[in-house]
Design a binder for these strands. Structure first.
Length: 471
DNA sequence: ATGTGC
């Protein structure tokens, strides 16, 4: 049984378990579902954990690990890596594009822009790309990562500076990838997918931090675009393959016992651990290219309809990923396996991995909200570096299950409601729209306010959707 | 999230 009173408030918006290495950033501990707390406590018992298993205010139930969670293990002392701590959609992430246009300059072209975006960017379950590659071309492209996109003309040279890890994971390989993964991924580059993934036309609605907004080249009433998607069937198959592999060797070969089979894991420095890391990084490359090709399509549409050449990347972040990093924790140096699942990196100002343009403000944090309300831009802080291994939340989090949403929400009413707010929809499936209705989600503003008040990231801008392309 | 399953 989960006892909520076992979590004590150690400062505003932060609760720590009295016996376990688990903390939750939340306004009120009663606002967390017991199932996801149980999952967090399971994670806190993983071999080699360093510090606490950390939950963000958008925590909700997931596969093994809760979504909205950070867990770090000690690579040098057989700390584990677990695919469930990354998620099936490896390198699911968000990219924000800015234009030099104001809302009033595009208002009359809005529907046309959405038509073209919907035509150019394949969306929906099992949607396929117009880019056809042979198996060997596909392999070459994913190994090269975003550098392939640059060579092929899908990226501008400057783009790479504004993507986390420059859009390229060097430690990647096809050696441990199944034919199935290749088959599933081969024709999916530059596709949106389904579920909560989207391409939105948005307007900068409110600026909270003028200085940081200026550095990010964001201004009120500006037209921006947000891309939320990941590694499609490719990453999904890689996750599936490695969960199966780890289930086979975890107990027999490595004598690891976990609280839940879905926490299947192996030591990160083991044979299987290293194979997973190389494969996960490959899926990460896929997702970076995926968001890059969608960017290319957006640029094409804006050039064609508005003759706008300025569509620049503000930033591109991953919220489902693990990285192996040297990190100081409690004045001790570690090589950490940092699992982040539904959590966003939020590095402080002057961190060496930030682009020069953003050095003084910290790492941009992109938080997708729901299609009817808003999304957010924040920046990382020193407090995050000290308390959360440099992380913050990733989104709103569900309150209604997909089925509940489909049963209780009326499609026509929803579309009318969105229209009345000035939001137009292009979607491959009606069911997805119902599943992703604003009513199915928590208010992202509450989530963002908690991380802001806990100082693990700072609000910079609020973005409001005016057009949504979905699967 | 996902060729929406073991």
């Amino acid at each position: 049984m989960i006892k909520l009173e076992d979590f004590v408030k150690i400062k505003d918006y932060k609760f720590k378990h009295i016996n376990n290495n688990a903390v939750i950033y939340i306004d009120d501990i009663n606002n967390v579902e017991p199932e996801s707390i149980k999952q967090l406590l399971n994670v806190s018992k993983l071999p080699g954990l360093v510090g606490d298993a950390i939950a963000m205010p958008d925590i909700h139930w997931g596969y093994g690990f809760p979504i909205g969670c950070v867990a770090c293990t000690n690579y040098d002392e057989d700390g584990v890596i677990s695919p469930g701590g990354i998620g099936f959609d490896i390198n699911c992430g968000v990219r924000l594009l800015r234009t030099n246009l104001e809302y009033n300059e595009i208002q009359k072209y809005k529907e046309k822009i959405l038509d073209e975006l919907f035509k150019e960017v394949p969306a929906g379950l099992s949607s396929e790309s117009d880019i056809r590659l042979s198996k060997s071309e596909f392999k070459k492209s994913i190994i090269k990562g975003i550098k392939w996109a640059l060579e092929e003309g899908y990226a501008d040279k400057n783009d790479l500076n504004f993507i986390e890890d420059n859009g390229y994971k060097r430690e990647s390989s096809f050696d441990y990838i199944s034919e199935e993964a290749i088959e599933r991924g081969k024709n999916q580059l530059g596709t949106l997918g389904s579920g909560n993934h989207f391409l939105e036309l948005q307007i900068v609605d409110e600026i909270y931090d003028e200085e940081a907004a200026k550095r990010l080249n964001l201004f009120k009433d500006q037209v921006v675009l947000m891309i939320h998607c990941g590694s499609r069937g490719f990453g999904h198959q890689i996750a599936t393959d490695f969960i199966n592999l780890m289930l086979k060797v975890m107990e027999n070969k490595y004598k690891i016992k976990v609280e839940d089979k879905q926490l299947a894991c192996v030591p990160a420095n083991s044979e299987e651990g290293k194979k997973y890391i190389y494969s996960m990084n490959l899926a990460a490359n896929f997702a970076f290219i995926n968001r890059q090709i969608i960017t290319y399509k957006v640029r094409k549409v804006f050039k064609k309809l508005l003759n706008t050449k300025e569509v620049e990347i503000v930033y591109d972040i991953s919220h489902n990923m693990a990285t192996i990093e040297e990190y100081s924790y409690n004045s001790k140096k570690y090589k950490l396996v940092m699992h982040r699942k539904g959590a966003t990196r939020a590095l402080p100002p002057f961190h060496p991995s930030l682009p020069n343009e953003y050095k003084e403000i910290g790492q941009p944090v992109l938080i997708p909200g729901d299609m009817g309300r808003y999304s957010f831009v924040l920046v990382g802080t020193e407090t995050a570096y000290k308390e959360t291994f440099g992380h913050t939340c990733h989104g709103a989090g569900r309150i209604k299950s997909r089925n509940q949403a489909k049963k209780t929400i009326n499609y026509n009413e929803l579309i009318k409601e969105l229209e009345s707010k000035g939001i137009s929809i292009r979607a491959a499936s009606k069911a997805t729209i119902l599943e992703e209705a604003p009513q199915a989600y928590k208010d992202a503003l509450n989530v963002v306010d908690i991380v802001h008040n806990a100082n693990i990231s700072k609000k910079v801008a609020k973005l409001r959707p005016i057009g949504v392309v979905k699967g």
